[in-house]
Design a protein around this nucleic acid. Structure first.
Length: 561
RNA sequence: UGGCCUAUGGUGUAAUUGGCAACACUACUGAUUUUGGUUCAGUCAUUCUAGGUUCGAGUCCUAGUAGGCCAACCA
């Protein structure tokens, strides 16, 4: 067993340091805390892999906690989708938690804060409160309600809870410091009135705690040791700590918040608003469209959990701005699929090839290796006949020596089959080649062991026997955006960079072994790319998605010329 | 004009905490190959700038520069 030496990321360094300074290994606990207001995307995947990866590394529990404090935006549908996605990525959470389970405890603590004179009910409009907030360079001014008596605050807060007031009538604020250089410390709102049913607590509550007054406290209740979030929450840390200061019991673990940079993927957008816009404008066909950077989209596209986990592991975690090139993600799917995907033959851009010296009506079943990378994958049989499809790109009447494919008078091997020689071709009135006639060498059959079968020819083509071919709908996906950072331009909207050719639906011809392929099955169409069976697929009408093409050095060569 | 964070090849991350700048991807060479795939070998850096401390600085200090975050009854 070669021990892989991976250097620690800065979060792991922090944990190691804490371990050295008295934290016990048993006290470690992490959490992944999504708000159930949308679908998880590749950015969340990084966070999931970070937190659950830490759990695996330290054998520590990881909670899946839903940060469900805003009933206006949240739905059960999202809770279920999130659970699905985390599970699919291959992780098991210790406890399924909901911030809404802590509403009563949070309320009791808030009452405690009021009694200590550290929180007060403000009865101004949100606009008035905002205008008193000040700016980053100017201190704010104190609310006229800041010094209400404890009794009055208690009474009003209870009234808020009991539904005696309209939305917006009052809020509960922490009494901290209106002159703080940190805007978040200027008497932040802890509770607002929302007469909206919650997907779990229904109408039990009509006041809802804000993020800052929920997150750290939830971490504390769950005894999470390290609460990891993205960098934009860094200014929240002071407040996170202030709230904890008010209520932490010295014999219990005190959670700490640490921040890392969110990962940005090139050629994509990830904000919920923008993803929603893509869905609603019909640019894509839903949240799980294979072009979407959502986890469900990636899954439908044919990405494997392993490939996403390896990707997350490779890009690591740090604190600086970043744009990870999508080619790294593509590398990881190819790497994984190369090991596990059975090879099959499919022709997507057919050109008819007739073998003139092959006996009319004859068929043969040729032996084909399922996966050269995996001996245990075994073999299958592929039907061969005198009329085949090959790719149009694989034939030219004339070409230079760099062209390893079929040209008139040239030889090529048909994968798993015979060596053929192109003799002539026929064209339509526009001059397009519509059929190629060739002859084959009957002694050159692959695996037959004859001298002729061992003969080296430069090119090998994939093919499908026309009488045996199964037609299938094939969806060729490409990047959704033509720009590396579609939402990184001040003067242009990200929608301006939509790639109009991100989806091309064609009819392909596949070998008959694919007839039984089921939704989710993954294949390598040899020389073309990796494809999976879409959920739209039926036994009558197969549907394949192209996950990613194979690396194509020939295409690059051609492009240069 | 305030506070805070960040800066290492084209990209992302490392560097035993002051000791030969490493790994992966991309790109480019070449070898192997019944997938122009895979695999294998190789090429690509004034560590943002300027000073300083030190035998020695990516790492420490000072001053700049650039980028990011912060004024929701969102999370």
């Amino acid at each position: 067993m070669a021990e892989e030496v991976r250097s620690l990321n800065f979060i792991e360094h922090i944990v190691e340091e804490d371990l050295k300074n008295g934290y016990s290994r048993e006290s470690l606990r992490f959490r992944f805390p999504p708000e159930p207001n949308g679908y998880l995307h590749i950015g969340h995947a990084s966070s999931i892999c970070l937190n659950f990866g830490l759990g695996l590394r330290y054998n520590a529990p990881v909670n899946l906690r839903f940060d469900d404090t805003n009933p206006a935006k949240e739905e059960k549908e999202y809770v279920d989708a999130i659970k699905d996605d985390v599970s699919w990525l291959g992780y098991e959470w210790d406890t399924e938690c909901y911030a809404s389970d802590y509403f009563q405890q949070l309320y009791d603590w808030a009452v405690e804060l009021i009694k200590q004179g550290k929180a007060y009910v403000d009865s101004q409009s949100s606009e008035a409160i905002a205008s008193q907030k000040g700016t980053p360079t100017e201190a704010g001014t104190e609310s006229p309600f800041r010094n209400r008596s404890v009794e009055e605050n208690l009474e009003l807060f209870e009234g808020m809870k009991n539904g005696e007031f309209a939305e917006g009538a009052h809020v509960l604020r922490a009494k901290i410091n209106m002159a703080s250089t940190n805007m978040l410390m200027r008497d932040p709102v802890m509770y607002r009135i929302l007469h909206k049913p919650h997907h779990r607590t229904n109408t039990d509550w009509c006041i809802y705690p804000m993020y800052d007054w929920t997150h750290g406290e939830s971490d504390y209740i769950e005894q999470v040791s390290h609460s990891l979030c993205t960098l934009e929450f860094l200014p929240h840390r002071e407040l996170y700590d202030w709230f904890l200061d008010q209520l932490v019991d010295s014999d219990k673990l005190r959670p700490k918040q640490r921040e890392f940079a969110r990962r940005n993927l090139s050629h994509t957008v990830v904000s919920k608003r923008k993803l929603l816009q893509l869905v609603e404008s019909g640019v894509v066909n839903g949240w799980d469209d294979p072009r979407m950077p959502t986890i469900s989209g990636l899954r439908r596209r044919g990405y494997t959990p392993e490939s996403i986990r390896n990707f997350a592991d490779t890009i690591g975690i740090a604190k600086r701005e970043n744009v990870v090139d999508v080619s790294l993600l593509e590398f990881h799917v190819r790497e994984h699929l190369n090991k596990i995907a059975p090879r099959v033959m499919a022709v997507l851009n057919p050109l008819k090839l007739v073998i003139t010296n092959y006996e009319k009506g004859k068929e043969e079943w040729l032996d084909a290796e399922n996966n050269p990378e995996d001996e245990s994958a075994g073999n299958r049989r592929v039907p061969f006949s005198g009329e085949l499809y090959i790719e149009q790109e694989d034939f030219k009447e004339e070409a230079n020596r760099k062209f390893f494919r079929l040209k008139l008078g040239g030889e090529v091997r048909l994968k798993n089959g015979y060596i053929i020689k192109a003799e002539s071709c026929t064209k339509d009135e526009d001059g397009n080649v519509i059929e190629v006639q060739c002859t084959y060498d009957p002694k050159s059959k692959s695996g037959s062991g004859t001298e002729e079968s061992l003969r080296k020819v430069k090119g090998t083509l994939h093919w499908v026997s026309i009488p045996h071919a199964v037609t299938a709908e094939v969806r060729l996906y490409d990047r959704l955006f033509n720009d590396a950072t579609p939402d990184g331009h001040k003067d242009k909207d990200f929608m301006d960079f939509i790639n109009p050719d991100s989806l091309q639906k064609i009819t392909g011809y596949v070998e008959p072994s694919l007839k039984e392929a089921k939704s989710g099955d993954q294949f390598q169409f040899q020389r073309l790319g990796y494809f999976n069976v879409d959920k739209d697929s039926t036994p009558e009408q197969l549907v394949f998605n192209r996950t990613v093409t194979l690396r194509d050095t020939w295409a690059k060569l051609e492009q240069k010329n």
